[in-house]
Simulated scan of single mutants.
Amino acid sequence: MAKVKYYYDEETLSYRKITVNKSDYYRRILFSFLGVLLIAFFGFIGFSQIITSPSERAQKRELENLKFNYKLLAKRLEESAVILDEIQERDNNIYRSYFEANPIPEEQRKAGFGGVNRYKNLEGFDNSEMIKKLTKEVDILSKQLVVQSKSLDEIVSLAKKKEDMLASIPALLPVKKGDFYVASGYKMRMHPILKINKFHKGMDFTAPKGTPVYASGNGVVNLAQRSSTFGKVIFVDHGYGYRTIYAHLSKMVVRRGAQVKRGDLIGYVGNTGLSVAPHLHYEVHKNGIALNPINFYYGDLSLDEFAALQKDAEESQSYD
C-alpha cells in the first residue's frame, strides 16, 4: 500500500493530505524514463571511447595518415604535370623544330583512356572518389611520359643523323691553303684543249705535282679509276645526296669501297687526262646536280679568304 503524504496548511493551521493527478503522475514517470535513457546513451558513448582497442586506434591513425599522403601525392602529381607541359612545349617548338621533325599533336599527347571502366575495382570504398581520381591522374601522366620518352628517343636519333650529315657535307678545301692558287671557277669558259665553250662544273686548284689531296667530307669511295677525260679520278659518295669528284690525280691512295673521313688523304695532284698543267679538278654534286664548290668551304675560309678565292675563281682560266 502506497504511503500517504501530507503537507502543513498555514492558513488553516492543520495538515492536509497531498493528492496527485494522474497526468502529473504519468509525466513524472515519462521524464524519469527519458532521463535514464539519456544517461545510458551518453554513458555508452563515453564507455565505447574508453574500450576502443589499440589496434582500432592504430588503424584510425593509419587511415588519417593515408588521406594526408594522398593529398601530398596529388599535389606532387600536379607539379609534375606542369613540368611535363613545359618539356612538351620545348620538345615541339624547339627540339623537333630544329631537327625538322613534325610536332606531336596535342590530342596524341593528352589522349585519355576509353573503353571499359578501368577503375571499377576501386569503387565501393569510403574514399573511392579520391582514390579513383588520383589513379586516373597517375595513368594519364604515365601515358604522357611514354609519349615524351619516345619523342626524345626520336630526337636523339635525329641528332645523331644531323651530326653524321654535318660531318658528311663536303665543307673543306680538297687542297690545303697555301698549297695552291686557283686557275678557274664554276662558269662558262673556253676549254684549253678542245677549244670550245663549255661550262666548267667545278673548280681547278693549280698546284705542284704530288701535292696532297684530301677528302672534303666523310663518305665512301664509289669510284677510283682512270678515265680518258678525268685521268686518274676518285668519286666519293657522302650520303644525303652529296658526291664529290677529284680528277687529274697523279696517284690514288684509296680504292673503291673505302671509308674516308673528312681530311683523310686520298691522292696527289697530277696532270692526267685532258689537262694542260698539274692541278686538281674538284666538283660537288647534290642529288645529281653540279653545284658551285666555292659555297662549301665554310669549314676552312674566313670571310676575307672567301672573297679573295671567289675573285680569283671568276677571273682565271681553267686547265682542263
Rank of each mutant, 00 (worst) to 15 (best):
9 D>V: 15
167 A>S: 10
128 S>K: 11
77 L>R: 01
151 S>C: 08
102 N>A: 13
149 S>E: 03
210 G>H: 08
66 L>P: 01
48 S>K: 14
253 V>M: 11
166 L>Y: 12
80 S>T: 09
25 Y>A: 08
54 P>F: 06
33 F>L: 01
103 P>S: 01
266 I>A: 00
231 G>N: 04
24 D>H: 14
289 I>A: 10
49 Q>I: 15
205 F>V: 00
303 L>N: 14
66 L>M: 10
312 D>K: 14
53 S>N: 07
26 Y>Q: 12
265 L>S: 07
68 F>G: 06
97 S>Y: 14
284 V>K: 02
123 E>W: 12
189 R>S: 08
215 A>Q: 03
9 D>P: 05
37 L>R: 11
224 A>N: 00
26 Y>F: 15
251 K>H: 11
177 K>W: 13
50 I>A: 10
57 R>I: 15
291 L>Q: 14
292 N>R: 08
110 K>G: 03
229 T>E: 10
292 N>G: 09
14 S>F: 07
225 Q>Y: 15
245 I>C: 06
67 K>G: 09
273 G>L: 10
198 K>S: 08
315 E>S: 05
267 G>D: 04
167 A>L: 10
145 L>H: 08
25 Y>N: 12
32 S>H: 15
161 K>T: 03
122 L>N: 02
19 T>N: 09
128 S>L: 02
162 K>V: 12
301 L>Y: 05
43 G>E: 07
271 N>W: 01
103 P>Q: 02
258 A>T: 06
18 I>P: 05
150 K>T: 07
254 V>I: 11
152 L>G: 00
70 Y>I: 07
43 G>R: 05
270 G>W: 00
127 N>P: 13
40 A>Y: 04
132 K>Y: 00
131 I>N: 01
239 G>T: 02
257 G>I: 06
271 N>P: 14
